[in-house]
């Protein structure tokens, strides 16, 4: 998708299912994206849209059973990493791809000191001595700006606040200098002032180490602050993909436009009424044949119920999964254009 650089990570047609008592959930239904070196890709979407499952499958963290990756390919520096043996997968995890989880309260082991948890990765991957690993752990804690790292390294997770635990998680994830950092809702459980600290820290670390980052979030404010590229997910598919400016200022998909108008704009003169997206996302036990957003879309046409739209190139490196971009959809595009909060932009066909 980004033509200039060869992407460090390429995901193609990824499909993931889960067997449950109620039937099979198609959590991810054909996801493509590419991550450019040194860039941040934000995957944004509402709960249940498949954003976490997508990155968990990159890490080989889908429990099977009940989970199943039914198709797709994930290439890291050109090498396929789906379907690796557990031993090979362990080489990738931690070493090449690091991950931070949403809940810093539960993702650390409460019975191990932090030093032990951080050095575990280092000892496994780099095979250094205990003393050397401990020294590195202290350096890492200093890098994530934990005060008194030398004493803190021997403490347990319960002695740390939420923000501090998230810093420790970051230290663990970058312990082996991964090329890619995956952050799954890293600040959702934190207060705004702490969120600002963590986002700052992530940006600094990323810049210093020239890491690529995949940031999963539902918060468009965090996306605006952190992302270079954005993938908007809905019902297990990417519905819009593009640069952060394009996604926010030239939104092409009705869902993206809907999300933006459902949020208060911080404008003193703004008229009083949010435009919610009516209804709720479709049931992924039995996903609709046509466009998944059909029921909630103000611009839905006949074709939308019958056939799932492909991803159209609406501009260079800007894709949108909507029939509205089809050349015959003229009448709707007029309506759509006038609804796009006064932005001037021609939908390219």
């Amino acid at each position: 998708m980004n033509s200039t650089d060869k992407p460090i990570l390429e995901v193609r047609d990824l499909k993931v299912e889960f067997d449950t008592y109620g039937g099979t959930v198609q959590a991810v239904r054909g996801v493509h994206f590419a991550l450019a070196k040194g860039k941040t890709l934000a995957i944004v979407g509402e709960s249940g849209c498949g954003k976490s499952v997508t990155v968990q499958s990159l890490m080989g963290l889908i429990p099977s059973p009940p989970g199943r990756i039914t198709s797709g390919s994930v290439r890291l520096n050109g090498r396929e990493i789906l379907g690796l043996s557990p031993k090979e997968a362990n080489q990738v995890r931690g070493k090449q791809i690091g991950m931070i989880f949403q809940d810093p309260m539960t993702s650390l082991n409460p019975t191990m000191t932090l030093g032990r948890q951080i050095t575990e990765t280092i000892r496994v991957h780099d095979g250094v001595s205990d003393a050397e690993a401990r020294k590195r752990a202290i350096e890492l804690l200093e890098q994530v700006q934990i005060p008194e790292a030398r004493t803190r390294v021997d403490q347990y997770p319960f002695q740390f606040s939420g923000g501090m635990r998230q810093r420790v998680m970051i230290a663990m994830s970058i312990a082996c200098n991964p090329e890619i950092l995956i952050a799954d809702e890293p600040t959702t459980a934190l207060d705004v002032t702490i969120q600002a600290q963590i986002l700052d820290l992530l940006k600094t670390i990323q810049r210093d180490r020239r890491m690529s980052m995949i940031l999963i979030t539902h918060d468009l404010g965090v996306v605006a602050r952190m992302a270079d590229d954005v993938a908007v997910m809905y019902a297990g598919q990417i519905v819009e993909y593009g640069g952060v400016q394009q996604i926010f200022h030239r939104s092409a998909h009705p869902y993206t436009v809907g999300l933006r108008s459902a949020m208060p704009q911080n404008d003193e003169a703004q008229s009083k009424m949010l435009k919610p997206i009516e209804g709720s996302p479709p049931d992924l036990f039995d996903p609709p044949k046509g466009c998944a957003y059909f029921d909630r879309c103000p611009h839905a046409m006949k074709v939308c119920a019958a056939r799932n739209p492909p991803l159209w190139d609406v501009q260079e490196d800007h894709l949108s999964r909507c029939w509205i971009h089809h050349k015959f959809a003229t009448s709707s595009t007029e309506v759509f254009r006038s609804n796009r909060m006064g932005q001037e932009w021609e939908i390219q066909k």
Partner: peptide, 27 residues
């Protein structure tokens, strides 16, 4: 002031250009 400055707004031009006054420490 620091709460408002920490509040991420859904506008990349504004967000990536403004200065983020990061409040030190925790409650």
């Amino acid at each position: 002031q620091s709460l408002v400055a920490s509040n991420p707004e859904p506008d990349p031009i504004h967000e990536q250009s403004r200065e983020h006054v990061v409040l030190k420490g925790e409650v």
